[in-house]
Design a protein around this nucleic acid. Structure first.
Lengths: 158, 158
DNA sequence: GTACAACAATTGTATATACAAATGTAATCG
DNA sequence: CGATTACATTTGTATATACAATTGTTGTAC
């Protein structure tokens, strides 16, 4: 994120000033830009673990299933991006030994996916780092402001 | 976006309820998810024009230069994602005839990039569609709520 | 004038998303 | 029982980002 601080360019200027940009456009830009800066932060702290944000999210989804077999659609429905190619994400996690995949005995079109012990261990290591980063990201706002922000974002999606 | 409405899954449930999730984590998730739904909307309306959001943004940046030669770093500094591979984006816009690239005479390490007439025409066609989409995205909130949302997002990035 | 460091862009490679086509399996219909 | 439709995943292909290495050019130091 320090690279971005070196360049104070048009984007921050636009977002910080009362420019003539229509409010709807400014809102869309602001959300997109903020999301990108957050992703960059996450990417930065995840880098030493050699895992992407999306792979990490898949592991968290599987952990949340508490050993219950999960199929690809279940995973995909719980992901931030609903159009992601979940087969490929799972393929890479298999290569890392973090998940395993079996053909579903009841319905062989489906696959049953589980997180492995290695995957759970990886999450135990990464969780505190991510939580610290999330806390840092949110730190410029008060609890009340965070509540308001969440409320407005949820309302926006209706 | 209608596909997402068919699945009311854990994510929206988490974001809409007072779940036990820490507020920082909820905020990060909310911003990321909202940004993704916005991108999906943009992608949907841009599809008939056979242009991506990022390509569209590059054209807008170049139009904003009013014919002034622009180099790759200038473009990249003004983009939402500062790590994008701008060379590749410009390559694709050249293939579409929307921009042209010349070696800078003063400094041959640099390239001068211009939007073409065809590119300007494309923007004239796309602009109203995008503005309508942005207005639609912002429509669930009042002007005051949008001001507050923008203020909170900007403060968050400090 | 030459060597070296720095700059700007390009290229290589990897990952993720987007979207359609292909493949194998299961359910349904006649 | 066979044909057809639907389902779930995989694969193919394209685009964007991420990041490092490479390439050509310019600036600086001696």
């Amino acid at each position: 994120m320090y690279i971005q601080l070196l360049y104070m360019k048009e984007l921050e200027d636009i977002l910080k000033t009362k420019s003539e940009m229509p409010l709807a456009k400014k809102t869309v830009l602001n959300i997109s830009y903020t999301s990108t800066t957050i992703k960059d932060s996450m990417l930065h702290v995840l880098k030493p673990f050699d895992i992407s944000i999306e792979q990490f999210n898949v592991l968290r989804i599987l952990r949340g299933q508490h050993g219950k077999p999960t199929n690809l659609q279940d995973i995909q429905d719980r992901m931030v991006s609903k159009m992601s190619n979940t087969t490929r994400l799972v393929d890479k996690l298999i290569l890392k030994g973090f998940v395993e995949r079996f053909i579903c005995e009841k319905n062989r079109r489906k696959v049953d996916i589980f997180i492995t012990e290695k995957g759970l261990k990886a999450l135990l290591e990464i969780d505190p780092v991510i939580e610290k980063t999330e806390a840092h990201i949110a730190s410029p706002l008060t609890q009340e402001e965070l509540q308001t922000l969440n409320h407005l974002l949820t309302k926006l999606r209706d």
